[in-house]
Nucleic acid binder design. Structure first.
Lengths: 191, 191
DNA sequence: CACTTTCCGCACCGATCGTTCTCAAAAGAG
DNA sequence: CTCTTTTGAGAACGATCGGTGCGGAAAGTG
C-alpha cells in the first residue's frame, strides 16, 4: 500500500456533474473541469479516465442523487397529490449549488442521440420517474383523491411530460408565474 | 456591381440548420459546416458572419419553416382534434432530410441558458405553439368536441408539454409504440 | 530506518478550434 | 476592351482542445 488520494473523489465528481449540467458536454473543457473540481489534471485522468468516462460517471452520480431525492420527496408528502405537487415544484426550485433544469433532459437532447450509453441512461431515468408517477397516481385513485376518469397510465404519461416540460422551461428562464401556472395546470389533471 | 454568388444562400443556410439541429452548437465545427453547406469557408464568413451569427440565422430559418408547417398542418385538418393529433404526430415523424427531435428544444437546453438572443428566440417559438394550441382548443370547445371540464389555458399548457415531451423522447430514440402511446395519452385529455 | 507504491505538478504532444489573410479568377459596368 | 468589385481557393494565424510522459514528493509497510 501507499498513500491515499488527497481529494475526495465523490466531491470532485459532484462538481464535474454540476459543470456538465450547467454547460453541457461539448462546451465543457477538461481545463474547466480541472479548475472547478480542484483536482490536478493528471489526477483527474488517473481517477476518472477520459472525458467521456468522467461524463458517464457524472451521469450515474446524478442519477443516484435525484432518485434518492425523488423518493424522499414522494415519501415525505402527506398524500399522492401533495407528492406530485412537491415533485413538480422541486423541478423548478433553484438550488444554490446546482444549475437550473435537469441534466437528464440536457443529456437527452445533446449527447444521447450519438451515445448509446447516454441514451440508455436517460431512458432509465425517465422510466424511473414514470414508474414513480404511476405508483402515486394508482394510490391516489385507490384513495379516491385522484380522478379515475383517465386511467393511471395515461395520467402518468401526461404528468411525466408536464414534468419534463417544466425542466425545459426553467432552463430557458421562464418566469416564476409561468412555471407555477404550468404546475397548476398539471395538478388540474388530477381532479 | 460585380459577380453574384455561385451558391444559394438559403439552401446553404438550410444545411447549416440541419447540422446544428443534429449535433448541437458546440459540437458543430466551422469545418463541418463548410463541408455540409458546400460553400467555401471564406464565403461562409462573408455571407453569414461568425459562428454565432450563422447559428442565430439558422434558428430564424428554422422558426419560419416550422411555423409555416404548423400552420399548414393545423389548417389542413378536418377539425381541431384532428389538427392536434396531426401536430403531435408530425413532431415524431422522421423527415428524411432532417434530424430527429426539435432544434428549439435542443436550443433551450444547450444555448439558451447562456445566450439571451437564443433564449428569446426559444420563448417566441414556444409562445407561438402555445397560442396555436390555445386557438385549436377554444375552437374545439366551442364546437363541443373538446371537453370544457378544463379551461382552455390549462389544456393548452398540458398539450404544449406533451408536445415538448414527445420531442425529447424521440430524440433519445424512444420506440414507436411508446411515442404513439404518448400521443394517445395527450388526446385522451380532450375527452 | 529503507523500500515500495501511489499521487501530483509541470511541460508538452499533435490535432483541431474559430477566424483572417492573401491573391488570382470571374463577372458585371462603362 | 478596361476597370472595379466580389468571389472562391488555400494557407496560415494564435488559441485551445483532449490526453500523456516524466519525475519528485508523500505516505504506508517492513
Amino acid at each position: 500500500m501507499a498513500r491515499h488520494k488527497e481529494f475526495d473523489p465523490d466531491a470532485a465528481l459532484d462538481r464535474a456533474m454540476a459543470l456538465f449540467w450547467e454547460q453541457g458536454y461539448e462546451k465543457t473543457s477538461m481545463q474547466e473541469l480541472v479548475e472547478r473540481m480542484g483536482v490536478h489534471k493528471r489526477s483527474m485522468y488517473d481517477t476518472f479516465g477520459d472525458k467521456r468516462s468522467l461524463y458517464l460517471k457524472a451521469l450515474d452520480r446524478y442519477g443516484e442523487k435525484v432518485e434518492r431525492l425523488r423518493r424522499a420527496t414522494a415519501d415525505g408528502a402527506a398524500d399522492p397529490r401533495a407528492a406530485i405537487r412537491a415533485l413538480l415544484t422541486q423541478a423548478v426550485a433553484r438550488a444554490d449549488a446546482y444549475p437550473s433544469g435537469c441534466l437528464a433532459v440536457n443529456c437527452a437532447t445533446e449527447t444521447a442521440p450519438r451515445d448509446p450509453d447516454a441514451a440508455r441512461w436517460v431512458e432509465r431515468i425517465f422510466a424511473g420517474e414514470h414508474a414513480l408517477l404511476l405508483e402515486l397516481v394508482r394510490r391516489g385513485q385507490r384513495d379516491g383523491e385522484i380522478t379515475s376518469r383517465l386511467d393511471a397510465r395515461t395520467l402518468a404519461d401526461l404528468l411525466l411530460n408536464a414534468w419534463v416540460g417544466l425542466r425545459v422551461q426553467v432552463r430557458v428562464g421562464a418566469s416564476a408565474e409561468r412555471l407555477t401556472s404550468m404546475i397548476d395546470s398539471a395538478l388540474a389533471l388530477l381532479d
